[in-house]
Nucleic acid binder design. Structure first.
Lengths: 335, 335
DNA sequence: CTGAAAGCGCTAACAC
DNA sequence: GTGTTAGCGCTTTCAG
């Protein structure tokens, strides 16, 4: 072990099989080759442990069998589940997936998108870092892009999302229905689409409930992460007139908010809570929480399927697919 | 928008700057070029929005700035945390990371390893699917490999792990110390190193406790996943003489086991429980559980650092780094 | 310090 | 069906 053995090339296989390099290439690309030569080539390839060099192939074809999936937080189970969906579909189609963690940082995201271009990747699925994420360079180069979870600002690309506004409204409404009177909202960064829309839903349900206070006093922008949720929850609880329930706009912030509630022995339903997105490893979480379930894996599956269609040449105008989210409120008995 | 604009090449930049292609290449590779020409080149490159084509560069150099990270379960927070560590280090060094989900399947894993070779990737970090995972083809081609979490069977590669046996022993011992008398073990697949070693630790502590029963009667092999943990837990609870405590060999199976315990209203400490690996989103889990904390992110950081050293030409003999894991038992007061 | 030129391994015209 | 050949865009001797 340890000697360096360079990869066999198509030329060596050709020589051993007594055919031309082109024929070897054809065999490995499923083109018409006589059964006889085909067998010869395969035998030679086996003998030399030949594997086609993908780099060379990509350079020649200007297009690789790799997809990029750009997400803002690889440690968020929502995104890993989505990634899992993408990976499954891609893998079945013979593609592999580069998972790029943008960390919600536009620069890091831009760098990954550059790489996708300069590596001639087949296409990109992106959950944009924020409103200003820019996929023009991809589009300009004719690389297929599909937006997932968040749809990009004013650009014509395929997108697959859930109905954020409706989900936010329904979750908030459920809280009012459960008898809470003062429902706060913890949402994400003010420049992230999903954060805005979910808060919109909350605002709309709050307004419809004809509350006596100013809704905006109970809106906190945070960062879609656990610690952000903790902090936001603390802020809300320390208000002069604290809310008696909160709508939290993503799974991770819900975990943080819940931690604070647990520490203060005010677990739901003592304080009402609704989460947009399933609590990770839900079975460990207390009952009594209203949850908007998101089809995370399915988002990934759908996005990957759409992307592959585009890669195969589908030219129809950009589509937006909105996936259904379901809501589950706690049993009345738990209240 | 929508027109296809092919990427500018080094030749076009050279023409515009009035220098040779080689000089453009040198500028972009930080080699010695006169300040004057260098400026000319940069200006031309800006104007043409030139980005070097990485595929071509890789083909020529037979080596790319991409690392592969092969893990058995992308939905396991332990691995995403590890991945995060790898990504951070790689990113700082100008590398990107392809995350490959092997699903614990040797064939899928082998396919990803083939791709790593045929794409000339810089190196591979692998948490092997099982004992028989084969990285010889990488080694034979001189590609650096570092094993993480699980170290490969009888192959000379760098590895970074935790002390699985000691952790299993300590966790089990803690359970006996807490007063439990019959400690079962739920571990992973019989052909996965970590599963074997953690169970070994359990066996050793159990034997040392001079129990009157046959330890092996209380050992269940499962699959390191939530549902597997559920099933294993049910099996154990339905024994004629059920255990009064369980040592669970990974985080996900602990979640499953805990679910069953919660459903049956036998939450710890009613039944004792120790988990090898932090419970995901621990704050949501009940207290009273003994936990062997794993430095997941640090495993990734260390592995990536070692891999980069190898890529830079480090030739020292293979090293194995064993990272420290700490254990936390519940307060006596909670019992 | 700079340029000319030869490929890296593969695919795709183009001939036969 | 099959072979010949010309590159894909870049790096890297080798001269100068």
């Amino acid at each position: 072990m340890g000697w360096e053995e360079s990869m066999a090339t198509i030329y060596e296989v050709a020589a051993l099989a007594g055919v031309s390099p082109a024929t070897v290439s054809r065999v490995f690309n499923g083109m018409n080759v006589s059964a006889e030569k085909s067998k010869l080539v395969r035998k030679a390839a086996d003998e030399l442990k030949f594997t086609p060099n993908r780099t060379a192939r990509t350079l020649r074809k200007r297009n690789s069998e790799v997809l990029a999936l750009v997400i803002p937080d690889i440690e968020n189970p929502f995104f890993t589940s989505l990634a899992r969906g993408v990976e499954d579909v891609a893998h079945d189609a013979g593609y592999s997936v580069v998972l790029c963690n943008s960390d919600g940082d536009r620069e890091k995201e831009a760098k990954y998108l550059d790489i996708a271009v300069s590596e001639d990747m087949g296409g990109v699925i992106i959950a944009a870092a924020d409103e200003h994420s820019n996929v023009d360079s991809l589009l300009a180069r004719g690389r297929p892009v599909v937006a997932v979870d968040r749809s990009p600002h004013g650009v014509e690309v395929d997108a697959v999302t859930v109905d954020n506004r409706a989900g936010g409204r329904a979750a908030t409404q459920a809280l009012f229905d459960q008898g809470y009177r003062r429902v706060a909202c913890i949402t994400g960064p003010a420049d992230v689409e999903t954060a805005i829309l979910r808060a919109d839903g909350w605002r709309s349900a709050t307004t419809a409930a004809k509350v006596a206070y100013r809704p905006e006093d109970y809106l906190v922008n945070s960062d879609f992460r656990v610690d952000g949720g903790r902090e936001a929850m603390r802020t809300l609880l320390s208000m002069e007139e604290p809310p008696d329930a909160i709508f939290v706009a993503n799974n991770l912030m819900s975990v943080g908010a819940l931690q604070v509630l647990i520490e203060r022995r005010q677990m739901p339903p003592a304080v009402g809570m609704a989460s947009f997105g399933d609590l990770p490893f839900a079975a460990l979480a207390p009952a009594g929480i209203t949850v908007v379930h998101l089809p995370a894996r399915h988002l990934g599956v759908t996005a990957a399927t759409m992307l592959l269609e585009r890669i195969r040449g589908d030219q129809q105008p950009a589509r937006t697919v909105v996936l259904r989210n379901t809501i589950s409120a706690p049993e009345a008995s738990t209240l």
